[in-house]
Design a protein around this nucleic acid. Structure first.
Length: 511
RNA sequence: GCGGCCGUAGUCUAGCCUGGGCAGGAUGGGAGCCUGCCACGCUCCAGACCCGGGUUCAAAUCCCGGCGGCCGCACCA
């Protein structure tokens, strides 16, 4: 929004944030400084960005995985093609496309032929050339412009394939496009070694790879990115374990953009009770996880009125999903963007792997053998970080700062000597050293004090501690609040306590 | 991937049309001086023509290709 007072007229916060991120070391495009032709969609996390990312992952592990008793595992990025045959990715990732020679529309060759011929002929096993010849032979027209000038068939491969083994010539493996398949394939052994019972919660943090057509907008669409995934395996006939858990969210209001409200954009708020009793959220388990994740994102600092669950419609949903909501966040620059993919995958994955591998993947339950269903919330952490910076970005006539949630800032506290003389630096180094046992501390004595404050503002450091001449007399220091620039003076022996309270949200004067 | 616009230090930019000089400035960065609380001032230092071809005596400048960026379309399983 051009008139936004935070970013100034006509300014784009997005561009400024991406520039700030590269300038100060949050993230930047991989290899570009040395090799200008490096492909797009690969990003480096610098020292500051990695700190933020690790803090988010840590928070997710404590507030989601720990409390839900999740078993976190780590599986390889490279998996045999068979896995993706079972998962349906092969079928959905290797489109054969033709391009219209006149209007340049790209269309799926098989879909075109099926529509033109009414599916009278089998297209299975046809070579690219045969498929193209059929298109031309039948005079199939472009549904967009009506022309009948087709380019040759091109394989459109959204997975990175690999030939594993020194003598392998054709692809026999691929980089995973989601971590889910690793958890599904290893489900049974993980279940056994954990002496698990349903519902059984697994989790993975991992990098995934998609050969995107046009990666754009920094961390928004990348070819290699990172997911925080939870995989809840459960008996669809028995989700009673979640009925009592749901009590914790009694009265909690979920925000939905329902499929039927797509055109108006109207957001429907319903309590978890309403969502469940109306049948909209299927069962207590899914309802619980939707509430848990919405609350987690509120705790991460996302304003509640910028969050919504967008129900995906038939044709939009992934091939494996029965019900599917995207948890989205709104910014003026990017509009509504998906941060978490929440899919009810039923037994699609386990039955697929059972079929292809011949291994029975059902587990024993009090009511006999059950092939579990899978519910999966998948966080795209790179987008989360990008949006945290976007929403934190502040600018007025004096300074630029990141009003990051205090517990997510790369540094907790900076320590400065007021001037670089009179023994102040030595005393400040001592203060910094003591604080570093507990906090992420940044020490700086270069340039003027004002400049150092500005530098810390720009990377979102919530507190700056300054050692001045009075410190030498009475052992007090000042703490400055990033957001208000206010200062309070506290005795050194109370500094750590005050910072601890301040960082966990207390007002500076009460801290 | 298609179409349009674009590519000079970390960032912003002058120069490009009309080829010719060590590629100029600001800001940021480093070293130092100064500095009693919010980008003060001074000195010094480092730092760029996206990559590759071509035309030419001579290319940041003109031509071609690649790569990248932005916007739109498509894609986003």
């Amino acid at each position: 929004m051009g008139g936004d007072p935070l970013t100034g007229p006509g300014a784009s916060a997005f561009n400024e944030v991406v520039a700030l991120a590269a300038r100060r070391g949050f993230f930047w495009p991989s290899s570009r400084d040395l090799y200008s032709d490096a492909p797009a969609g690969f990003w480096v996390y610098g020292p500051l960005g990695l700190r933020v990312k690790n803090k988010i992952i840590d928070m997710w592990r404590r507030r989601i995985l720990a409390r839900e008793g999740a078993q976190e595992i780590e599986t390889p990025s490279v998996l045999p093609l068979k896995v993706f045959e079972a998962s349906g990715h092969l079928e959905h990732f290797f489109d054969r496309l033709v391009e219209c020679g006149r209007c340049h529309s790209r269309l799926r060759a098989d879909k075109l032929l099926e529509e033109a011929t009414g599916s009278q002929i089998s297209l299975e096993g046809l070579s690219d050339e045969e498929l193209h010849d059929l298109l031309v032979g039948r005079g199939v027209r472009c549904p967009v412009c009506g022309a009948s000038e087709w380019t040759g068939i091109r394989r459109f491969n959204l997975m990175f394939t690999l030939a594993v083994g020194a003598e392998a010539e054709s692809p026999n493996a691929a980089l995973r496009p989601e971590t889910t398949q690793g958890s599904v394939v290893e489900f049974k052994r993980t279940f056994t070694v954990s002496r698990g019972k349903l519902p059984f919660v697994m989790a993975q943090v991992g990098r995934v790879y998609r050969n995107e057509i046009s990666p754009r907008r920094a961390l928004l669409r990348m070819r290699e990115f990172q997911q925080l995934e939870v995989h809840v395996f459960f008996d669809p006939e028995d989700t009673s374990a979640y009925e009592s858990k749901l009590a914790e969210f009694s009265g909690y209001r979920l925000r939905f953009l329902r499929g039927e409200d797509r055109e108006t954009g109207e957001i429907t708020e319903m309590t978890v009770e309403e969502a469940l009793s109306s049948g909209y959220t299927v069962n207590p388990l899914i309802t619980y996880w939707l509430a848990l994740y919405q609350r987690f994102f509120e705790e991460l600092g996302f304003p509640r009125d910028r969050l919504r669950y967008r129900e995906l419609l038939e044709g939009e949903k992934a091939h494996y999903a029965l019900v599917h909501w995207d948890l989205e966040v709104y910014t003026e620059d990017l509009g509504w963007v998906e941060l978490v993919n929440n899919a009810y995958r039923t037994d699609y994955d386990l039955s697929g792997h059972s079929r292809v591998s011949g291994v029975d993947l059902s587990v024993d339950t009090p009511r006999g053998k059950v092939l579990p269903h899978l519910y999966e919330p998948s966080i795209g952490i790179d987008r989360v970080i990008l949006h945290l910076l976007l929403l934190s970005y502040r600018r007025d006539e004096r300074r630029v700062w990141l009003a990051l949630p205090r517990e997510l800032a790369p540094y907790d506290v900076a320590v400065f000597p007021l001037v670089k003389k009179d023994g102040l630096p030595e005393r400040a180094v001592e203060v910094a050293r003591r604080l570093s046992r507990e906090f992420a501390v940044f020490y700086d004595d270069k340039g003027s004090i004002g400049k150092r404050y500005r530098r810390m503002d720009e990377v979102g450091t919530p507190a700056c501690v300054t050692v001045d001449h009075r410190t030498l007399e009475d052992s007090t220091v000042t703490i400055r609040d990033r957001d208000t620039m206010e200062q309070v003076r506290v005795p050194e022996e109370r500094l750590a306590d005050s910072l601890r309270r301040f960082l966990s949200g207390a007002d500076l004067r009460e801290a």
